[in-house]
Amino acid sequence: MARNLHRVLTPANTRSRRGADESRLTQWILIGIAAIFVGLFLVLPLVSMFYEAFRKGPGAYISALTQENTLDSIRYTLTIAVLVVPLNALFGLAAAWALTRFQFRGKALLTTLIDLPFAISPVVVGVMLIALFGYQGWLGPWLRAHDLKVVFALPGMVLATVFVTFPFVARELIPMMQSQGTEPEQAALTLGASGWQVFWHVTLPSIKWALLYGLILTTARAMGEFGAVFVVSNRIAGEMPIPLWVDNLNADHRGSEAFAVASLLAFLALGTLALKAWLESRHQEEEAAGLWTTSSPVINSGESETAFTTQTPP
């Protein structure tokens, strides 16, 4: 979840200045190794996936994507994302506000708790939900009596996805809001603005980039989650999110269809990266124009503190 801040910090055209002291030959050897590594390790998997997806021609590709169950799974994934992303955005805003604007006991514990999804295997999340909502679980008898389904149904999938993605917005906002300090907000308050006004007109504009990055990451992760929903899915064709449907197609000896549907997720991933890059360049322009100055946003997990402190421009 770590991310590069340098693109924001140092405009691209000034970056190569750094007099590389190594000989040209050493440089090219190192670049060569890096290029081979990236080629074999990152590019080849992508290429082979698109190759497998389109191996049977565009017709087969289209029909794999437009079959009823695939469309259902796309719809299902979108439903999950639409429910999860706003919830986590609200949580992220609230948590960042509480953690960066106030001192209170148990703050460190709360911060650690927010990082938990990064350290925990998503499968464990699924087991927790079964322990609570399974009919043999804690709330099982009550749920059964009221005929409510959580695990092996949409609510369980949503909860599992919320769990694995809730830190993203918060983790984007916290370093950002920390670096900004509270002076502008306090000034606005002194001038008689109400709390909500301060939030909408002072805080929100200054954190919008971080918020956007957080939303993008949350969406991407929510749509791609596999482990946690793997445990709580009911495996009914048409009620599986896209990653599970890929797994299912693969198990059905429908390899090329699996790759076709997987390529959809790959496009999503590449789209996410492109969107992020575009936002970053917009962000950079805005910053360069001097509309406001803050440190760069940090997309990361637990290392935000490090990244934050090491990144503050001298």
Partner: peptide, 20 residues
Amino acid sequence: IQQSHGGSAKQARAVIDGLD
């Protein structure tokens, strides 16, 4: 008619845990 497929023991567990 909806179908759900998976390993037999796993499917049985899902039914026990609330798969309808």
